[in-house]
């Protein structure tokens, strides 16, 4: 579904992503693992069209993706819930969701999708006119995921959705991600919490200083010694 080939991305003259290649298959959960500064968020931002790659290719459903403007990427069916959530804090829950659906013209469809999000996250539904900044971290993360889903993406990219959440909240988010996958949405996940993410993943890549050093199924990586040492805190 998504194919990334030899992607190089730079901030100024410093390469943050140094020629990575990976695939995301339709209907799967694919995880990017990596230490801080490895280039995970940079990769997602580039796929979203927020950054322009130096070289390399990106293909989505058989169409070329690099060079496509950010708002067109959303129209093509790729949505991102960015790192740190970046909600519109002064806007109501409803307005945040409406912004997620900015690229859509079918008002009725937007309304039913909004109701679906409220079914999925009842907290949001019961406080839909309150502004986003007043919600707790976990609730904000739900809203951020909901907002990204409002564009009806076929590929949903989540950048550290469990950041700063309690274990219970994190489990809730993880099970939500799984149920989204079961509904047929393909998911590209960036996570610090390697154990939880790998258990969920069909495929995973380890990114280190801008390069992919390891790849395999979630289970394979869970059993890998290097992963155990570096990301799971085991000896």
């Amino acid at each position: 579904m998504l194919e990334v080939k030899q992607l190089v991305v730079a901030y100024g003259r410093v390469n943050a992503v140094k020629g990575i290649s990976f695939n995301v298959e339709q209907g799967q959960i694919v995880t990017l693992l990596g230490t801080n500064g490895a280039g995970k968020s940079t990769t997602l931002r580039t796929i979203s069209g927020l950054l322009t790659p130096v070289s390399g290719e990106m293909w989505f459903e058989g169409e070329r993706l690099d060079g496509v403007a950010a708002h067109k990427v959303v129209e093509k069916g790729i949505a991102q819930s960015p790192e740190g959530r970046r909600l519109f804090r002064q806007m109501s829950v409803e307005d945040n969701l409406r912004l997620g659906a900015f690229s859509r013209k079918d008002a009725a469809g937007v309304r039913t999708d909004m109701d679906r999000i409220f079914d999925l996250f009842p907290v949001l539904g019961s406080r839909r006119t309150e502004r986003a900044g007043l919600f707790s971290g976990g609730e904000q993360q739900m809203l951020a995921i909901g907002r990204a889903m409002m564009s009806r993406p076929r590929l949903l990219m989540l950048d550290e959705p469990s950041m700063g959440l309690s274990p219970i909240m994190m489990q809730l988010i993880m099970s939500t991600i799984r149920s989204l996958r079961d509904e047929g949405i393909t998911i590209l996940l960036v996570e610090q919490n390697a154990a939880a993410a790998l258990k969920l993943s069909d495929k995973a890549y380890v990114l280190e200083v801008g390069q992919i050093t390891l790849e395999g199924t979630g289970e394979q990586l869970l059993g890998d010694d290097r992963v155990k040492r570096a990301y799971l805190g085991e000896d």
């Binding site: 129209e75 960015p82 970046r86 909600l87 519109f88 912004l99 900015f102």
Partner: peptide
């Protein structure tokens, strides 16, 4: 208003 609040987030949402 979204641009005013967070331009990058607005762009990521397809604005």
């Amino acid at each position: 208003v979204a641009i005013r609040e967070d331009e990058l987030a607005a762009e990521a949402m397809g604005v």
